[in-house]
Design a binder for these strands. Structure first.
Lengths: 190, 190
DNA sequence: CTTGTCTATGCAACAAGTTGCATAGAAAGA
DNA sequence: TCTTTCTATGCAACTTGTTGCATAGACAAG
């Protein structure tokens, strides 16, 4: 279960509550793994029950109390064990691609605005990642920070940037194709 | 549920049995959606119960009988409806990226062979896609086949090719980073 | 003073996906 | 002949992930 390991990594980087983790999963960790708060709370409780975590009740002023989790020794051991065993290369799951192929059985040009919307969403994410790169790492070829954690975080972020760039370019390609099809067979329903 | 729609698209492209669908999900449809045979059989039965499909028992020589599914009118309507409603832009889920970030809390160079393995797997897929492109579409800039379905299938395949190319390049980048870290802090455990 | 947003945690029900196992005839190879 | 592989379908149990709802105090805007 990779959510468990993503939580261990995130808590090793910095201890925090379920709520804080949920927000990290909307940002940096979310570059490569997503989770809702319900899922996170459930898994945190299980991991705590398994002795992988330590909890500390933290009283706050002007806010509800929170449970701050950190990684216990068995949690760190579990992460190390997982790091040393192979995982399967993952396949993509892209709903939009299903739609694009399905457009052959409908009006292909009906998909143009949908693809445009996705293109903009990926472009937004790309710009967000690039802003984060400038902020946290001083740009793509900054002088090396010489901190292992930062180096690896930057390498993962470069992956997110490459993914979004590639996706935007591909969706532009798809839009070209859809527009060409629309021009060639106007009003046709195939 | 996108598996349902992926099945509708695949059956519209060509009717087939659950077994045949499962094999297509290991190939062309599998470029962007994966499913096991158990999942496919279960969903096929539900879709049949919902009246989206038509079944035909086909006797075969030298092989077990099969149930050949094709799309009924309500199935086609369901696909059209789905094509016209928006879907959310998807996020990636990349277990290897979790590992890379986790490597900061272990020996980073222990990950090198794992990343190399993934790099080769993605490179294999890339070559497989490129071979399919040559076979089915005559290469990246073949004369336009002028068939809507083929155009769209090619556009999706180009997306798969772009994804694998990007991934291989990124993993090379990650390998550079890991090797640099190994050279800089030999035998260190962070 | 009410509505909305933010922090913070959680239950219950459901949907989707995975894993292990079972059956069964035909063909192919050792 | 025995084992393996391929075609073909399916059940049962389990894990993972999603959706809807609930609570509750603090704060800000109208």
């Amino acid at each position: 279960m990779a959510l468990e390991h993503a939580i261990l990594v995130s808590l090793l980087e910095k201890p925090g509550s379920g709520y804080e983790l949920a927000r990290r999963f909307d940002r940096s960790i979310g570059y490569f793994w997503t989770a809702t708060h319900q899922q996170i709370y459930r898994v945190l409780r299980r991991m705590d029950g398994d002795g992988l975590l330590e909890v500390r009740e933290v009283a706050q002023q002007g806010r509800p109390d929170k449970k701050e989790y950190s990684v216990a020794a068995p949690g760190r051991a579990a992460l190390t064990a997982w790091l040393h065993e192979p995982v399967e290369p993952e396949s993509i799951r892209h709903e939009l691609a299903v739609k694009i192929r399905g457009a052959a059985f409908d009006e292909p040009s009906a998909l143009i605005s949908e693809v445009e919307r996705h293109r903009e969403a990926h472009d937004d994410r790309l710009r967000h990642y690039l802003a984060g790169e400038r902020r946290d790492f001083g740009g793509p070829d900054a002088p090396r920070p010489l901190d292992v954690g930062q180096e690896l975080q930057h390498a993962v972020l470069r992956g997110g940037i490459a993914f979004e760039r590639m996706t935007v370019a591909w969706l532009d390609d798809v839009l070209d194709t859809l527009r060409r099809l629309r021009a060639a067979r106007p009003g046709s329903r195939d």
